[in-house]
Design a protein around this nucleic acid. Structure first.
Lengths: 173, 173
DNA sequence: ATCTTTTAGTTCATTGGTGAAATGTTTTCT
DNA sequence: AGAAAACATTTCACCAATGAACTAAAAGAT
């Protein structure tokens, strides 16, 4: 991404001009959603860049992190699909790659033999513990100048937005 | 994406547990950046779905919108790359496709003959005007329950975050 | 108890975006 | 005038993601 601020400026001007032509446009909200999109994809790009040296992409990392963060370090492909918003096909591929690297193991479920149980290995845990700490300074710096109240507000507003999005997709059935 | 709220809950619990094991983690900020990522990609997914019926993806749409929002409806590949954060290769491909569909035209620049001038056509404008209005209700609904102050805050905080990200990538040279 | 439907996961073929390198122009610098 | 830089395109190789078809197991229906 070039310069986020520059992109935002041009977006602001653009929306300003478009709303002259199309006055029904909810321009405040349009600005907000473009902001979300721009900052979100910049964050994503950023993260991907940090993960690349470890030969992981965002989906791989998320998968690993979910397993890592589980009390007993396991899950199933279906559940992982749900939380990573990946298709089943893709999850199979991701799991294959992680098994290949010895970061997870796969075995048949006991209760329900259709399910596959995916466990994070010791090596997987070690990798997570190696990747995370170098990320911290940057995560901190991203929110430089944010007061505690700012962070609370941002959290609240993002969660509210998420809630609205859920409502909308429920209605759209 | 499954259910955003459900994903957020599990993220919250996950970060809670991880921060027990790795206490140096800035967990508030980590939560915020995951929230941004999740909500951002949900918005993106959403938009892509709305664009699909018109055979456009996000990049195509952005390209078209930038041209549409310009006072004189034109730009160059280089500039479009910058604002859409696409590589030159991809922009060439996008432009090819849009030219193919008669939504833009491409011709040599006059002042600087290395540049290519990309113009939006009347058909391109018509398509934008056809796509946008149906998007409005949803954009409005996304921010249902947001007070004017909420929107101002969100805007301010996102811009601040964007500013910090710019600083970080400048330093990282 | 058997037959059907549903659920979970995998396989395979394909699409679509991405990155690197080479090319052809045009402009800028010296 | 000649060297270097900038702009765009083309080609090629590649990887991630998707869709359709398939297998196996469990749940539900008759």
């Amino acid at each position: 991404m070039a310069n986020l601020t520059k992109c935002i400026n041009m977006m602001d001007e653009g929306i300003g001009r478009v709303s002259m032509v199309i006055p029904q446009m909810p321009s405040t909200e349009a600005r907000l959603s473009r902001l979300m999109l721009m900052v979100g994809s910049s964050l994503e790009e950023d993260l991907e860049a940090k993960l690349k040296p470890h030969n992981l992409n965002h989906s791989d990392f998320l998968t690993l992190m979910i397993l890592y963060s589980r009390p007993d370090g396991h899950s199933t492909p279906g559940e992982l699909c749900e939380f990573t918003s990946q298709g089943a096909t893709n999850m199979t591929r991701i799991a294959n790659a992680l098994v290949e690297r010895g970061l997870i193991t796969r075995r048949a479920g006991e209760a329900d033999r259709r399910c596959v149980l995916i466990h994070i290995t010791a090596a997987g845990r070690r990798l997570v513990q190696k990747i995370l700490p170098p990320l911290f300074p940057r995560i901190g710096a991203m929110f430089a100048g944010f007061s505690e109240a700012d962070k609370r507000h941002l959290s609240r507003l993002l969660r509210k937005l998420a809630h609205n999005l859920d409502q909308l997709s429920k209605e759209a059935v």
